[in-house]
Design a protein around this nucleic acid. Structure first.
Ligand SMILES: [Mn+2]
Ligand SMILES: [Mn+2]
Ligand SMILES: [Mn+2]
Ligand SMILES: [Mn+2]
Lengths: 229, 229
DNA sequence: TTCGAGATTTAGGTAGTCCGAAATCAATAT
DNA sequence: ATATTGATTTCGGACTACCTAAATCTCGAA
């Protein structure tokens, strides 16, 4: 039997694998809100069930089975966020926490009703791709706003859905998926980024900018895009 | 902390108190799907937390606190059933199981959004009253179709939401809350009840008829309504 | 190459929910 | 009044998910 806890561990492992090439016990402990000791125990259990490959002291990787369990939960999560936002008019900084609990209890039947009613949406309110029913998902390379050179034109693709405070602020600044912007300058010491959005300019800290994923529309002439990490 | 299990025990105790004047361990065991031994243990815990009054070998009663916890869950359940039915078009024999899981995880915020969108509904798809936000509820006397004399005109008020098979059948027979009917005859041995609904007549067994709650529109001239039990 | 520091695992334990089997109780029939 | 029986509780045990503290491992700095 797959418990809600199993689903959360697998989902967070999936998310961490997208951002890091090595997923550790402590990273997972941080995400699921449990102690490292607890995570070690759970990883042994998940490995026994063949949902992850686990090398003590090394790290953890999802198996194919584990990945599809994770994607099923991610699909629920993102469909629910989209539904709550569009059908119930719930603001985008409140949908995540609600979906976090609902994702584990909706039936496949309800999932498909929601999917139909929304006309099979491809992205959620934060710009994240919604896995298809068959588990396929478009996992494009993720370019963080912190890694964009000055002078570049881009469009926001996705923002992190975890922090309501961040989302409320981005909303006030009119920074949403789809928003066009130009990077005016990057301050090298503190990483402050100056942007032009429509006709206004504004400054973001690197903590905020690192939560924003963009795609480049017109590259700066002065050099190449920096690599993250 | 109130767990999902706590909520289920309290909710079922509430439901049983409406139908019986004495709620026993085995009745609860049957409803929550656990052994009598398990229920005894849980009742001790619930009594310790002052959610029920529990007399070993005697039975169990909700305290005021226990009742309001139960009504909160019942409100979630019935609002969700109504929403799933009206907004998502889910058939009335499928909404119960879905609501059974969702009821424990929706926030007060989502509850109120749903309530607003439905314009503060008073009854759910099965005719059961939805407790108000403040916990008030119209608990009218419940007259079962099995207790109605031949010759009486009535209207269906409520049907049990637990059994999808029953609901599917009632739907096929066009027996819904609001449906008018006349009891043509009651067969004394097997309890078969003959009804006239619109222009057609049909026969129900007592198992089915006992799940239907009615209110009398015009009493038979030949005597009084029988008492249940 | 050795030595820590920090990450991780192991050990020992709690809380919650469940079970079957055995013991006990309460109510009824004799 | 007593025996029987069905309901209920008690007992011993299982399983999951969590914790802290102690032991152990890994890897980079010296
Ligand atoms: Mn979750
Ligand atoms: Mn999202
Ligand atoms: Mn429930
Ligand atoms: Mn109902």
């Amino acid at each position: 039997m797959i418990t809600e806890t199993d689903q959360n561990y697998l989902k967070e492992t999936y998310a961490l694998q997208l951002e890091h090439d090595h997923v550790t016990t402590s990273m997972l402990a941080d995400r699921v809100g449990a102690s490292a000791a607890t995570v070690t125990g759970m990883l042994k259990k998940l490995a026994e069930r063949q949902w992850v490959a686990y090398e003590p002291y090394k790290g953890v990787t999802l198996t194919e089975t584990g990945r599809s369990i994770a994607l099923e939960v991610v699909r629920h999560h993102r469909l629910l966020e989209t539904y709550l936002s569009k059908a119930l008019g719930i603001p985008w900084d409140k949908v995540h926490d609600e979906a976090e609990r609902l994702e584990h209890v909706i039936s496949e039947y309800l999932e498909s009703r929601i999917d139909e009613l929304l006309d099979h949406p491809a992205i959620d309110p934060h710009g994240s791709p919604i896995p298809a029913h068959d588990g396929s998902i478009r996992e494009s390379a993720r370019l963080h706003l912190t890694d964009v050179r000055a002078g570049t034109d881009c469009e926001i693709v996705e923002v992190s859905d975890r922090d309501p405070g961040l989302l409320a602020r981005l909303d006030r600044l009119k920074l949403h998926p789809g928003t066009r912007l130009q990077v005016l300058g990057v301050e090298p010491i503190d990483g402050l980024i100056t942007l032009r959005v429509a006709t206004e300019s504004l400054v973001l800290g690197s903590k905020t900018a690192s939560q924003v994923i963009v795609r480049i529309i017109k590259e700066s002439h002065h050099g190449r895009v920096q690599q993250h990490h």
